[in-house]
Computed example of a mutant assay.
Amino acid sequence: MITTEQNDELQQCTQRLEAIFSKVFEQLETLAEQVVTVWDALAAEGRKPTSKDLAFLQATIEERLSSNDTYIHGTGVVLEPGELADQELFLEWFYRPASGKIAPMMLNFNRQSESFYNYQGMPWFTRPKLTLRASVEGPFVDLYGTELYILAFSLPILAGGRFVGVAAADIAMHEFDQLLTRCLLRMQNEAFIINGEGRIVAANSTNWFVGNMASRPAAAKVHKLKPLSIDWSLVELPTPR
């Protein structure tokens, strides 16, 4: 039988997790709004934006990455091909490398190269484009960028009702997992968080491994995390940990 205390634990943990995710999306919304402001102003002038028109975002991005309480490893905006007058593919993106000094992300957009970075096929770009909703993808290894095990948060940027790109953030799992697990460890029973694929993102018991697939047992209590537009859930089992 689930006690009132356990119900309270589940609700409190759910609320904490929702607050963590909401904070990331709030920061991305700020970036998206800044891009839309520029797009609207340039549209009124009758001209197309260029990569230089996005340089002002650097200050906002660096402020986010420099914050003492941030778990964002890299963030910025990634544009729909053809949106700029001077670049076909473009991103205004900065990250925190091992040195700790914030640096711009340099990727290869040469279509003839073997190392061509084609973000048009990446789920964190395609899902917001197709659904016009926020997305969280992963965890996965960022092979073309930092080679870290990450979660990719993204939301669509809409200017004049038209998709022009995404505002996105990479969260390093080794840092983010501490926040998620800290919350789960306050629960008496075994519990884990699963993403839309049914893959475990965090758990409070060694019986469940991050990255493995897990179903939602019939006897479990499942809470969908509201800030996410995909099916992420907190699952509590009737088993003391």
Rank of each mutant, 00 (worst) to 15 (best):
Q6G: 01
Q6T: 02
E9H: 05
C13T: 15
C13W: 02
K23E: 14
F25Q: 08
T30P: 06
L31W: 02
A32H: 08
T37K: 14
W39K: 14
A41Y: 01
G46D: 01
K48C: 12
D53G: 05
D69N: 12
I72S: 06
I72K: 08
T75C: 11
T75Y: 01
V78K: 15
V78M: 15
L79D: 03
E80P: 05
E80L: 06
E80H: 09
L84H: 06
D86C: 14
E88G: 07
W93P: 01
R96F: 00
K101Y: 10
A103H: 02
M106T: 13
M106A: 14
L107H: 01
F109Q: 10
R111M: 12
E114I: 14
Q120V: 15
G121V: 15
M122C: 10
M122N: 13
P123F: 07
P123I: 02
W124D: 09
F125G: 11
R127F: 12
P128K: 07
P128Q: 06
T131F: 11
A134N: 11
A134V: 00
G138V: 00
F140D: 08
L143D: 05
L143Y: 01
L148D: 12
P156I: 05
I157H: 08
A159E: 05
G161T: 02
R162V: 10
R162G: 04
M173A: 10
L179E: 12
T181D: 02
N189A: 05
N189S: 06
E190I: 04
I193K: 13
I194A: 15
N195P: 10
N207Q: 13
V210Q: 15
M213P: 02
A214D: 03
S215Y: 03
R216S: 08
A219L: 14
A220H: 05
K221N: 08
L225R: 00
P227V: 13
S229T: 14
I230G: 15
D231F: 10
S233N: 11
L237N: 03
R241Q: 05
